[in-house]
Each structure stands twice: as C-alpha cells, then as structure tokens.
Simulated assay, not measured.
Amino acid sequence: MNSPNFDYLSRGLEAANLRQEVISNNIANVNTPHFKRSAVNFEDLLAKELHLDDDVNRLAIVRTHDRHLPIPLHGKVHAVIEEDDTTTMRVDDNNVDIDIEMAGLSKNHLYYNAMTTQLGGFMTKMKNVITSGQS
C-alpha cells in the first residue's frame, strides 16, 4: 500500500514494538551491576524527516499544478536504540530506575493502542472505498 498514513503508522508500530523490547530488557536488568539502560528514539527522528522542528531549513517548494511530480522524501527514518551511559542511579553504576521504566511501559502501551486504532480505522476506510467504489 502506497500511502503516507499507512507508512507512518506502520513505522510507529515498529518503533512501539522495539520500545517494548528495550524497556523489558531494562526492567529485567534492574539489579544487574554496571548495566546501562537503553531507550528508543523514533519520534524526534520522524519530526526531522518531516521537517517539523526546523522551520529555518524548510524549503518553500510548492506544486503549482496537479500534473507536476510530487516532492520526494530524502529517506525514511526508523527507530534506533540509544544507550544512556551518562547517568548512574546506584553505587554499582546501574542507571535503571524501575519507576521510570514502568511509566515508560505504560506510556508505550497507550501509544501502541492508539496506533493500532488509527491503523484499523485507516484500513476500514480503505476497505470501504474498495468495496463501495466511492471515495
């Protein structure tokens, strides 16, 4: 399916799945000496891809006619795992805070549910367009 909505939602779900794994690993290693927590970065990278955080460097390109070619994206970002080695929570150099990780787990669960709801609604609309022949 060649739709920006589908693309963004599917990449968002991939990021949520990866974030679930990373948070689970952090929680599993809460008592491991010298363990450094990791986090998933996706939303900031997506904002840069879409130039939402950079009004200064945004090009003012406009399609003046429907038959003009669309403006291509310069690459699709995906979620990346980043290790936090700048902090320490305990004497044994472990930096996992179980309260922060559990809050992140809950937040990610809500994010995932919202993304699946949006994707389900998008798929239902596409199905309705295909089966009814209307837009």
Rank of each mutant, 00 (worst) to 15 (best):
residue 77 V to S: 06
residue 46 L to W: 00
residue 60 A to V: 09
residue 67 R to W: 05
residue 55 D to V: 05
residue 51 H to G: 03
residue 67 R to Y: 07
residue 59 L to F: 14
residue 76 K to I: 10
residue 77 V to F: 03
residue 62 V to H: 13
residue 64 T to Q: 12
residue 46 L to H: 01
residue 70 P to E: 14
residue 65 H to V: 06
residue 50 L to A: 04
residue 68 H to Q: 14
residue 41 N to Y: 00
residue 78 H to G: 10
residue 73 L to Y: 09
residue 46 L to V: 03
residue 55 D to L: 04
residue 71 I to Q: 14
residue 44 D to L: 10
residue 59 L to H: 13
residue 47 A to C: 00
residue 57 N to R: 07
residue 52 L to V: 01
residue 37 R to H: 08
residue 45 L to T: 10
residue 53 D to G: 03
residue 78 H to R: 11
residue 41 N to G: 00
residue 50 L to Q: 03
residue 77 V to A: 06
residue 77 V to K: 05
residue 69 L to C: 02
residue 65 H to A: 15
residue 48 K to R: 15
residue 55 D to S: 06
residue 72 P to V: 04
residue 77 V to W: 00
residue 44 D to A: 12
residue 37 R to I: 04
residue 71 I to M: 13
residue 44 D to R: 08
residue 49 E to A: 05
residue 76 K to R: 14
residue 67 R to G: 06
residue 69 L to W: 07
residue 75 G to F: 03
residue 38 S to A: 14
residue 57 N to Q: 08
residue 38 S to F: 06
residue 48 K to V: 13
residue 60 A to E: 11
residue 65 H to K: 12
residue 40 V to I: 08
residue 48 K to Q: 15
residue 47 A to Q: 09
residue 60 A to G: 03
residue 61 I to P: 04
residue 48 K to M: 13
residue 37 R to P: 01
residue 78 H to N: 13
residue 61 I to Q: 09
residue 44 D to C: 00
residue 51 H to I: 07
residue 74 H to W: 00
residue 77 V to H: 02
residue 51 H to T: 07
residue 37 R to L: 06
residue 73 L to T: 13
residue 64 T to H: 13
residue 74 H to I: 05
residue 38 S to V: 05
residue 68 H to M: 11
residue 78 H to K: 11
residue 53 D to H: 01
residue 47 A to H: 05
residue 43 E to Y: 03
residue 63 R to A: 09
residue 37 R to K: 15
residue 60 A to I: 09
